[in-house]
Design a binder for these strands. Structure first.
Length: 567
DNA sequence: CTGGGGAGGGGGCCC
DNA sequence: CGGGCCCCCTCCCCA
């Protein structure tokens, strides 16, 4: 006995779960976009994914091979067996898809793309490598205004703000997932965007589950979980297959055509086109296994990147070794994100961001990302709502203004509020995070009466005092009604950015600190230090009442309670 | 079943 | 901004 639609129903459910982020256990980073998915599904789709998700909860893909738009198509394809086209011209899109599919070892999809290209009389644009194959020209990608859209599914409210159909054709680029030139939203806001390619509709799910979080700004330290385990899985993972099985010989000509040709003919492909994989046997199989050992050179490159992650996360080598702080949502600069995510994560450059939307430089890949991360990036400093990860701290006020921490029930209200902030406000709040300027002035007043004391900086609220004003400012935030640092994933608010980024690690499963003895990993160095006493047998904490010794102070404390409690 | 200890993990907060 | 410490919660094991 066999249920005829069992597999289909199962996949449908999985896709719906993906749309809601339910049980998603892996985040895939593509340029400046995040996608959530299920490891099992990815692993069943390709050997490459299988090796990636084996040890990692956070995966970053080579943006030369795949861009967010294409990956979104691919993810939809994986979950539905259907390929939905974008507004991108057909050949260009299929070339990009073929590049990405080859790279990701999605052989069925690659074959499908090849077939389609062949049918259209276009040969694959060549070796799956040229950035322009996998992604539109930079001039296109950066030509749009700096409005970041995050995409949500399901909820109809807010969909009005950024319908992709309003976008001028011919401007379609991967960044338009996030950057919309026609978005009516305030340019400072992250708005909920619409499904770009209608991918959600095909399978009844709300699709678009990707986080759509922008990773630009500075700090996507993306300490890939790869860093967690460099010794264990360096062999198997990240063996970027890039099978590039398409003939490399016929590369140049068609590439130029597809990459630079004005995509004004987008109309012919703008409506969702479904390609049911029935015609090509979409099997969530491991058919790619036979090719998984190829292209070892590329594998090395990925391993190297993982090591770079390691350096950042584990050894404070990176500018932000703490997971995904603001960078998750800030900053439209896809280039910087691209650099950050793909270019070996040099600790000095990794998270710097350069505003390039305006100038649209062509060769910025070669330019130093020297601009400070603080420069010119107040624009996207606002939080959004994301389905599946409902912020917990605000109830219905899911749109949170980062500088002041206020929550609003709609993006429109947030935008209205945002405009009440002056640039100066933003500066002050970002720099010192004062509630208001007066407070800042008061605190910087050198004539304070307690200036001569050892802890001259006293809190006006609780009388605590501190040695330096920065610590006082830090402390004073604890008195605020709203906390300035929200978690981009769950919405929980924190008074300190460091606490928030530390918290982020728990979402991402990042445990950079490994015990050399037993391999156990920890989110904090301090935990590892504590843990090492398990191996050393050291019990430095002694109960003065009974002489009992403990490895951890907290356990001594709880032990002391036992002594002091009436029972 | 219960209490106590060991240990993992998260948040707050100060340096 | 990271490190470190404190506090709390929780789970597990064991007597």
């Amino acid at each position: 006995m066999e249920l005829p639609n069992h597999a289909k129903q199962l996949l449908l459910q999985l896709n719906q779960q993906r749309a809601k982020g339910f049980l998603c256990d892996v985040i895939i980073v593509v340029e400046n976009a995040l996608f959530r998915a299920h490891k099992n599904i990815l692993a069943a789709s390709s050997m490459y994914f299988k090796s990636l998700v084996l040890h990692d909860n956070l995966i970053n893909l080579d943006t030369d091979m795949v861009n967010p738009t294409v990956f979104r198509q691919i993810l939809d394809f994986i979950y539905t067996g259907k390929l939905l086209t974008t507004d991108q011209p057909g050949e260009q899109n299929f070339n990009a898809l073929l590049t990405a599919a080859s790279y990701l070892q999605l052989h069925d999809l690659a074959a499908l793309c090849r077939k389609k290209l062949k049918r259209n009389g276009k040969s694959f644009a060549g070796k799956a490598g040229g950035p322009s194959v996998g992604r539109p020209p930079r001039s296109h990608r950066l030509s749009t205004a700096s409005v970041i859209q995050t995409r949500y599914s399901g909820s109809t409210e807010g969909m009005k703000g950024s319908q992709s159909k309003e976008l001028p054709k011919g401007k379609i680029s991967d960044d338009e997932i996030f950057i919309s030139s026609s978005n009516q939203e305030n340019s400072h806001s992250l708005s909920r965007g619409a499904s770009k390619n209608g991918g959600s509709s095909a399978n009844g799910s709300s699709g678009d589950q990707e986080l759509g979080l922008d990773l630009s700004k500075k700090s996507l330290s993306l300490p890939s979980a790869a860093s967690l385990d460099d010794t264990q899985h360096s062999e198997s993972q990240h063996g970027s297959p890039q099978s590039a099985s398409a003939p490399a010989a016929n590369s140049a000509s068609s590439f130029d055509e597809s990459a630079t040709g004005a995509p004004q003919s987008a109309a012919d492909s703008s409506e969702p086109m479904e390609m049911d994989m029935n015609e090509e046997s979409h099997s969530l199989s491991e058919s790619g296994q036979r090719k998984s050992l190829r292209h070892s050179a590329r594998k090395k490159e990925w391993i190297k990147k993982d090591n770079a992650f390691d350096r950042q996360e584990g050894g404070k080598g990176g500018e932000e070794g703490e997971g995904l702080p603001n960078g998750l949502l800030v900053g439209p600069s896809s280039k910087s994100a691209e650099r950050n995510l793909t270019n070996a994560y040099g600790p000095e450059h990794a998270f710097q961001c350069k505003e390039e939307v305006e100038n649209g430089q062509e060769n910025s890949d070669d330019s130093e990302q020297s601009e400070s991360e603080s420069g010119g990036h107040t624009s996207a400093n606002y939080v959004y709502r994301q389905e599946g990860f409902e912020p917990v701290a605000y109830g219905d006020n899911l749109y949170v203004c980062i500088p002041c921490g206020k929550g609003f029930p709609s993006s429109e209200q947030l935008n209205a509020h945002v405009e009440t902030h002056t640039e100066e406000d933003l500066y002050i709040k970002e720099e010192g995070t004062y509630c208001d300027k007066e407070e800042a002035e008061d605190l910087s007043n050198p004539n304070q009466s307690y200036a001569a004391e050892s802890r001259p900086f006293k809190c006006s609220v609780c009388e605590k005092s501190y040695k330096d004003p920065a610590t006082l400012r830090q402390h004073e935030k604890t008195h605020w009604l709203t906390r300035p640092f929200p978690c981009n994933i769950c919405g929980k608010m924190f008074t300190q950015r460091g606490t928030m980024t530390r918290h982020m690690r728990s979402h991402l499963g990042l445990k950079p600190f490994a015990c050399e003895e037993c391999g156990m990993r920890f989110t904090r160095q301090y935990r590892l230090t504590e843990h090492m006493r398990v191996h050393s047998g050291e019990k430095p904490y002694e109960c003065q009442l009974c002489g009992g010794k403990f490895t951890q102070q907290r356990n001594l404390i709880s032990h002391l309670r036992m002594h002091t409690s009436p029972t």
